[in-house]
Design a protein around this nucleic acid. Sequence first.
DNA 1: TCCATTTAAGTAAACGTTTACTCAAAGGAC
DNA 2: GTCCTTTGAGTAAACGTTTACTTAAATGGA
Lengths: 343, 343
Amino acid sequence: MAKTGSRVTIKDLASICNVSTATVSRVLNHIKGGYSGETEARILRAAEEMGYAPNPMARSLVTRKTSLVAVLVPDIHYYFFQEFFAGLEEYLNDYGYRLLLCNTQEDSGQEELFIRGLCNGLVDGIIVSTLNNREQNELLVELDREHFPIITLERYGEDLEDLCCVQIDNFKTGRMAVDYLYSQGHRRIAFIKGRREAKNAEIRYQGYLAGLKKNGLEPDESIVRYGDYSFASATKAMEELLEEGGFTALIAANDLMTLGACKAITKAGRRIPGDISVLGLDRTILTDTHEPSIVAIDFCAHEIGHTVGKCMMAMINNQPLEQKVILQNPVFHNGKSIRLIQR
Amino acid sequence: MAKTGSRVTIKDLASICNVSTATVSRVLNHIKGGYSGETEARILRAAEEMGYAPNPMARSLVTRKTSLVAVLVPDIHYYFFQEFFAGLEEYLNDYGYRLLLCNTQEDSGQEELFIRGLCNGLVDGIIVSTLNNREQNELLVELDREHFPIITLERYGEDLEDLCCVQIDNFKTGRMAVDYLYSQGHRRIAFIKGRREAKNAEIRYQGYLAGLKKNGLEPDESIVRYGDYSFASATKAMEELLEEGGFTALIAANDLMTLGACKAITKAGRRIPGDISVLGLDRTILTDTHEPSIVAIDFCAHEIGHTVGKCMMAMINNQPLEQKVILQNPVFHNGKSIRLIQR
DNA sequence: TCCATTTAAGTAAACGTTTACTCAAAGGAC
DNA sequence: GTCCTTTGAGTAAACGTTTACTTAAATGGA
């Protein structure tokens, strides 16, 4: 039976098989030529029998590749990331890559520490999905210039010019939401925005405004509120809106806020969708399992994970990154990757 | 400004400071003695100026420590893991450790591959939180015997004897659930179990039975159903139960099933908790945000993460593992770590 | 002053791989 | 038979650290 935590090295194999470590290495790495079929079989058999497993550190030291990719997230609790991780990990695993999880807890200092600690040989690439931060952008751009693979997810800013930025089409999302509700007969559509500092939240709102305009509706600030992406903030916002009145539908900028708003609506004795139609941006399991069922626009976190993984592997392998151009503009377009989920 | 993706090594520092690499290493690692204060300052300043960062691979190669811990989960989508990861990562980070995320997708073959690939130098320890699997247990025990740090979460089996097993007090959880509902006046309490193969699900059920007995209630198989921890399975189970009737309260074995059951109840026009009281085992954000609000027992995933992290650090540092004894029996006891959450 | 101890280093091996380079033997073309 | 090419290896350096061992100078005690 093969040993596990074994200390058997390439040298052991070499001496047992009466060959040099170079030959063993060539055989084990399936490098063409440099050994006969007989030698190959002998080495392979010995490796199998002794339960040889290469030491990743030693290998990495010379190849300068670690088969590790780090992903930085501001708060692991967002359900979006769960699906994102699944997709990302799935993709990377197919290439023998492993995922390093870094939860920065929205702490920008922590974040920079993470990045500096990781970029120096521990990982082959870093995926950054955190709040914007001017100073940090500099660091990212600098690393990118040194050809260290960096991919940002949902970051916005002119100073990120040369970076590979994977972005959700927040604008279209907001517009689609209005389109959908308009098509259902709604003419007065309230909106709960995301946090003030979040660029993507702002873009979703711009999409909403564009949607109104496109459908000939007048924007009305009195039925728009800020939230902070949290459940409670949306409940509060919705309570205010209900007092204000004058709308038949609501768009909430993320999943938690969608549920928070629903709570306020139900508490107020109004029915969904009878009295008020609710449409959530960002479909997750939270919106999936909600009763009454609600319509949500899917950002396809799992697919985004795949896409990011694909870009990362391309960058690591110095392959031309076709996606780059597309990704700098919003990645996910209508029919293909944004879908309306209605249960 | 400090360089980032830099290639500056300890040798560079040594030659610039006119010292040997040994001295640089000693200074940088704050090893007592072996250099003067002046030399120390000179080296530290040079390191700072040149933006030196140690190469983790080179270091790991000689120290045989990587500051990496892997965690294997069957399905990353369980919300429990999100809080667990947060707690675990938080704890490990304080010790300079990073978390490697391995989603095995319930594939036992995948799992073994992961473990074998990781244990040979990539990580300093592995946390296994996956379904039971006899053959795999052997591998785990073998690694443990070789003093490779292994911790299992929610695994059960006599063949795991010497392993460090962190377990939830599933039995007590089930019993407490009944106690609570009994105290609210319920005398007929239905139960939706977890998947047949899951040992912990069975234990929760045993706890439920014990709770009934303790309170002088007769168990009744007709108001017990199997689910598979999924939303849909509980909806289906609940539909059956509602047809059956004869109960005023329900316990569901996890968060998703709690919500699934609620859906069926609401759909059937019954009110929660007016007509049927629902108590969920495993409080997560899913149960937190549910309308109407439901009672749930908190497994304290975040704290479990901390505990597991603590055990792991102890094992890695060869410290006496006091927790071990406690952990082999259920870890989390009543007042301290299991709490009733009612919003 | 002499010896023992402490201080402040340096030397070099080791960790386990990969890989550029070398080299001898064999094979093939003529 | 000679020369060139291919095959099947081996040698040794390199990757960037850590660390056991050595060493020379300084310090201190008597």
